[in-house]
Design a protein around this nucleic acid. Structure first.
Length: 498
RNA sequence: GGUCCCAUCGUCUAGUGGCCCAGGACGCUGGCCUCUCACGCCGGAAACACGGGUUCGAAACCCGUUGGGACCA
């Protein structure tokens, strides 16, 4: 395979053919997360960021944030903000940056000038139409659609719009030393003279990445394996620029249930949408950490443990399917173990508008105790949103009765029982668990009812639901006055005898 | 189509040649606890893609096949 009539001057041929294991010049390792701001921070990006963060922290290195916004069409300010917001929510703090590629055009310009004057790059005046034509022709002949090197050796300067191409060194093979996958071999004849600088003067992705990774002295490039095919080109450029290579490590993609790369059509993929659905950032971090990485049989990790244990040896190499059920379970675990005061503060902003707040007994100004209520409900909810839902009847007197509850429990047959409750509760000396237990036991004996038969109608009257925390917890949470009011309301609700 | 990657229960995974007729977790399921529902606890079903090698021995190493994916076009 030849580049047409172009004269080929081998550049650093031996280096590309026999890549050395990268050597570290830095005393501290340096990693970067380099998102393109063309959308929100999605789960895949978040995991890449997390792995970079964890690897850096584990080794006492630095984590750098770089925004790759050279695609002027698709990059937006909103997206940049969304990515920062996502990282912040996940508590992935960076040590340097954010750097914006759009503010570093001078740097790319100076490097492309250097390559140009050293003969490692050249201006190409082929028009998009010409290239398209040649591409088609090559495809028809069954040849790979590479650039044919037409401008590679032109003796005169052209004029008009042009791109700058990298004079790709001739090499038999380029080997990517991947920390996760081992050696990845690419046939050297595959590569054509790719574009470094577009006709509008903006650098291409591969060019800007290499320039920045050198400039920022990145020691480890840890990124999604959708970039594997870019790596040999980047390596050739590193070598041509006389730079030692960083370590590369490509982590597998996250897939949807259909085993294709996770994307919008799989539903919620934005990190922030998980906040909006009532997930805890710690739970999401824990979940994505375990997607493609493991530490023996452990499922739940503190941030500290994640940093302590994280390593590339236990990053898998096959793609992982995102499983919302397991995330839900993890979130429930984190809620169960959360400090009740904190949990209450997380739930508070999510509460529905309260029309008629419950007042705690004996202290009209204090109001309901959200911490206690939330504490009783936390093992019964998997998300903060569910928790906010469940808690509502305990903070708002204007709750409603579920239809099946009305039919099953708030009926004529239970009227005497509910009246009796009202009477006995009003007479209790101290509103505590012991006295309440007494009341129920006594009534149970008198009327020959089991606790289950006693508790369900009461629960229905007090909460409008078939499900709630333990009946004594409910009674204590609501307080005497509220309980009596609710029993009155339930009794009024029962349709009169016909 | 080209290049590259990947392959253990439905899903996430443990496993680095003998500890594995394969362990944990989610989900599913039986039971216990119990005033409901959860939580919790105990149990169950459920996997090494296939075919060849290498080896005394293979889920693990090699080759091929099949299947899946990513990138480029």
């Amino acid at each position: 395979m030849s580049y047409g009539n172009g004269e080929i001057s081998p550049l650093l041929p031996s280096v590309c053919r026999n890549p050395e294991v990268p050597r570290l010049k830095e005393s501290k390792i340096r990693l970067r997360f380099a998102p393109s701001p063309t959308g929100y921070l999605h789960l895949g990006g978040a995991r890449t960021a997390l792995f970079n963060y964890l690897f850096a922290r584990h080794h006492g290195g630095l984590f750098i944030l770089r925004v790759e916004d050279t695609d002027r069409e698709r990059s937006t300010k909103e997206s940049i903000d969304a990515i920062f917001e996502g990282l912040k929510w996940l508590d992935l703090d960076w040590d340097e940056g954010p750097f914006f590629q759009s503010e570093r055009l001078d740097l790319y310009r100076s490097v492309s000038d250097r390559l140009l004057s050293a003969g490692h790059a050249y201006r190409c005046y082929c028009t998009p139409d010409e290239l398209e034509e040649r591409r088609k022709a090559a495809l028809e002949k069954g040849l790979p659609p590479k650039y044919n090197g037409r401008c590679r050796s032109r003796s005169t300067e052209g004029s008009g719009p042009h791109v700058i191409r990298f004079r790709h060194p001739e090499t038999s093979e380029i080997v990517v030393r991947d920390l996760i996958r081992g050696d990845l071999r690419f046939d050297g004849s595959l590569f054509d003279d790719w574009i470094l600088v577009r006709s509008d003067g903006y650098p291409t992705y591969n060019f800007a990445v290499v320039v920045d990774d050198i400039d920022m002295r990145i020691t480890h490039v840890l990124r999604g394996d959708d970039h594997i095919n870019n790596t040999p080109r980047q390596i050739a450029l590193f070598e041509t620029l006389g730079e030692s290579l960083p370590f590369f490590a490509h982590i597998p993609m996250i897939h949807g249930a259909d085993r294709t790369k996770l994307s919008k059509r799989h539903g919620a993929t934005s990190v922030m949408s998980y906040r909006d659905m009532g997930f805890l950032p710690q739970a999401l971090v824990n979940y994505i950490a375990r997607l493609g990485w493991s530490h023996k049989d452990q499922e739940i990790f503190t941030r500290r443990e994640l940093v302590d244990y994280f390593d590339l040896d236990h990053v898998g190499s096959s793609p992982a399917v995102f499983n919302p059920e397991k995330l839900l379970w993890l979130n429930a675990q984190y809620m169960k173990n959360a400090d009740p005061n904190e949990l209450a503060e997380w739930v508070r902003p999510l509460l529905h508008p309260v029309m008629n707040p419950v007042r705690s007994e004996g202290n009209e100004t204090q109001g309901f105790d959200l911490t206690k209520i939330v504490d009783e409900w936390k093992t019964r909810s998997r998300t903060l949103l569910e928790l906010a839902d469940s808690v509502h009847p305990f903070i708002d007197r204007d709750f409603s009765y579920a239809q099946d509850v009305l039919e099953k429990h708030l009926n004529q047959a239970n009227r005497p029982l509910l009246s009796l409750y009202r009477e006995r509760f009003a007479a209790i000396r101290t509103w505590d668990r012991d006295h309440l237990t007494d009341v129920l036991k006594t009534i149970g004996t008198e009327r020959n009812l089991k606790l289950g038969q006693l508790a369900q109608p009461l629960r229905a009257a007090l909460t409008g639901q078939n499900v709630s925390p333990g009946i004594y917890e409910v009674l204590i949470l609501l307080g005497r006055q509220e309980v009596i009011d609710r029993l009155d309301r339930a009794l009024r609700t029962i349709p009169p005898e016909t």
